[in-house]
Computed example of a mutant assay.
Amino acid sequence: MHTIRVSEMIDEQKFNRFHLQILLCCIFIIICDGYDMFMLGTILPSLMTEWKITAVEAGLFSSYALFGMMIGALVFGPLADKFGRKKVILICTVIFSIFTFTSGFADTPTSFGIQRFIAGLGLGGVMPNLIAIITEYAPKKLRSTLVAIMFSGHALGGVVVSLGAMYLIPNFGWRAVVWLGALPLIFMPILYKMLPESLNYFILKNQKSQLADVLNQVEVNGKYTANDHYVLHEKSKNDSTGFPVKQLFKKGRTVSTIMFWVAFFMCLFVMYGLSTWLPKIMEGAGYELGSS
């Protein structure tokens, strides 16, 4: 029986078809995530006109989804460690796809807002798990690059919804833009087949056969079997246990942790605030909705 240090083996691999497969799956999901998140800005002027709501009421729509994202990230992140990242990613994708689609049938602001909140749960849960699974399988030299490439799909989703709305809203109304958010459901069987489960989950559940199958795809000429002994990474005496967030404030990391949080808060504040209100601001300045 051989002892396989999984993390070290993954780090040493070259980019191959298996890595490309994971990357494409994650890019597709994050594009759909970006489409859903930036969608509100494209339809907000139409919602305000149809439902005769104020800017304050319209702003709540964005807040509902963002509150859902915050809760989703906090809940589905830990759940992925217990039930597997693949399962959580697919469940979250189904959640935001279904409730985005059904929000297109909403006839009141309240109904629309509730469904945006539930969709936000899925949006928030899927993003950190996509980053985690890319990081887990990526070769060490390409890890940051692959995460950056994958995450750029979020902005691409914003481009797609903007271009799509230019055609859909004048011809079919804002609901058509929302209904298109159900597209990931069509590809769910492909995603289920192509996206691998987390390495940590395989080891935690002692699923050696499944782990060996995946590692033989990671390493083209690999000959791993269920009889091998698998270790994700070597534990050191400095490894900590307990509530992990506490570790962010230990060993002199308090100031840097707070500064990172402030930087991310301001970045997201600008990004989501601008994406939500820019079309309405431009329309108010005299531009046509399509140009906005």
Rank of each mutant, 00 (worst) to 15 (best):
D239S: 02
H233L: 00
G222R: 10
A212C: 10
S236A: 01
K223T: 15
I258H: 09
K250M: 11
K208F: 07
N206A: 15
L232E: 00
N221Y: 04
W261Q: 03
N206R: 02
K250C: 08
F269S: 14
K250P: 05
R253D: 02
W277D: 01
K205F: 01
K205P: 00
V245T: 11
K235I: 02
F249A: 08
F260R: 09
G222H: 07
P279S: 12
D239F: 01
G252D: 09
L204R: 08
G242C: 13
L248V: 01
W277Q: 05
K205N: 05
L204P: 00
M259C: 06
V231F: 02
T241P: 06
Q210E: 08
A226F: 11
V218N: 04
F243E: 11
L274H: 15
G273Q: 02
V245F: 14
P244H: 08
G242Q: 09
L278K: 06
K251E: 14
F249M: 10
I258M: 11
N206T: 10
K246F: 14
E219D: 13
H229S: 11
E219A: 10
S275E: 15
L232W: 08
F265P: 11
L204W: 10
G252T: 04
N221R: 07
N238V: 03
I203F: 01
M259A: 15
L211N: 05
H229A: 05
F243Y: 14
T276W: 08
V218E: 03
V214I: 10
G273K: 04
Y272G: 11
V218Q: 11
I258P: 06
N206E: 08
V220A: 13
Y272S: 15
G252M: 04
L211R: 06
D239L: 01
C267W: 09
E234C: 00
M259N: 13
K250D: 09
K208C: 03
W261E: 12
I203W: 08
V255K: 10
V255Q: 06
I281H: 14
E234K: 07
Q217P: 04
N221S: 13
K235V: 00
E234S: 06
